[in-house]
């Protein structure tokens, strides 16, 4: 399990999990679950284009940028979730086309959608590390504005941060994270890694910083457990990620129900 060809996978998966856990905290806080699902899935045409010979990282980044731009532009005229859905279907339609033009039809699609954690090469470690670093520093820089605008858009606007801009920056961070995580867990399940741990962490701590760190820790544990289980059983890693995310969510809900007995309901959930 820890032989040399697996080491890259462990390193990359760990970085992906930590970033996904941290970003996921804001995804859950801002109620951006659909966007967090649509952006990874929307990078699918980028992956599919790489089957046609386009550089994988460029393809992914291009699709992520299209996704972020599409959601932000359409959201001016539409409800947020409708904008997200429209962007998603357009990108998926493109992906279908690219996929059908490539010859690696059936083989490729499975790996694209559900990930191929065992096949990570040494050349993928550095790009992932750099993108993780970029995503982490973006979160640190935007920590307060992101938090504030999640709680009150008006308050945030008064303090000089236009909500549209914050949304755009936040979506870009999510897009960055997903483009990086895609080769590891696959398009369909990146967002389980973002949403599951964060939902449990939020239930366990109402204070932002501890909840964020807890979320990253749970995500890391989840990624490691999924990889180990996948290695031992030979079943797809995505199955374990999805199941463990649901488990984390269930534990979180149970936890908040237990601790609520005997306490007064909190005044403002999410922030102390």
């Amino acid at each position: 399990m820890f032989s040399s060809f697996m080491m890259n996978s462990w390193i990359v998966a760990s970085m992906v999990a930590i970033v996904a856990g941290l970003v996921g905290f804001f995804v859950v806080l801002r109620g951006a679950t659909f966007a967090a699902h649509a952006l990874p899935l929307g990078t699918f045409p980028g992956e599919a284009a790489s089957l046609l010979g386009v550089n994988q990282l460029f393809g992914l980044a291009g699709a992520a940028i299209l996704g972020v731009a599409g959601i932000s532009l359409l959201a001016r005229r539409q409800r947020n979730e409708v904008a997200t859905a429209l962007t998603l279907i357009t990108l998926l339609g493109l992906g279908t086309l690219f996929l059908s033009l490539s010859s690696q039809y059936a083989q490729g699609v499975y790996a694209l959608l559900f990930g191929e954690v065992l096949g990570i090469g040494a050349d993928q470690v550095l790009p992932v590390a750099l993108i993780s670093l970029a995503a982490l520093s973006a979160i640190l820089l935007l920590f307060r504005p992101l938090l504030l605008s999640a709680v009150s858009e008006d308050l945030s606007a008064v303090r000089g941060a236009p909500p549209g801009l914050i949304d755009l920056l936040f979506l870009s961070i999510v897009g960055l994270t997903t483009a990086m995580a895609l080769p590891v867990v696959g398009a369909l399940l990146v967002f389980s890694l973002m949403v599951g741990p964060a939902s449990a962490a939020r239930a366990m701590s109402a204070r932002p910083l501890p909840a964020m760190l807890l979320s990253a820790a749970i995500a890391l544990g989840m990624a490691w457990a999924s990889m180990a289980l996948s290695y031992l059983s030979n079943w797809p890693v995505g199955f374990f990620v999805g199941t463990l995310a649901a488990l984390a969510y269930a534990i979180g809900r149970g936890w908040s129900r237990m601790t609520r007995i005997g306490h007064q309901p909190r005044q403002s959930p999410g922030l102390a």
Partner: peptide, 25 residues
């Protein structure tokens, strides 16, 4: 609340897709 409804939807979605991955495998 809408945000919590979306979260639950996301969790069901993740678990379901995981199951899809397994069954396709």
């Amino acid at each position: 609340r809408a945000a919590e409804r979306d979260l639950l939807t996301g969790i069901v979605l993740g678990a379901g897709l995981g199951l899809t991955a397994l069954l396709l495998y």
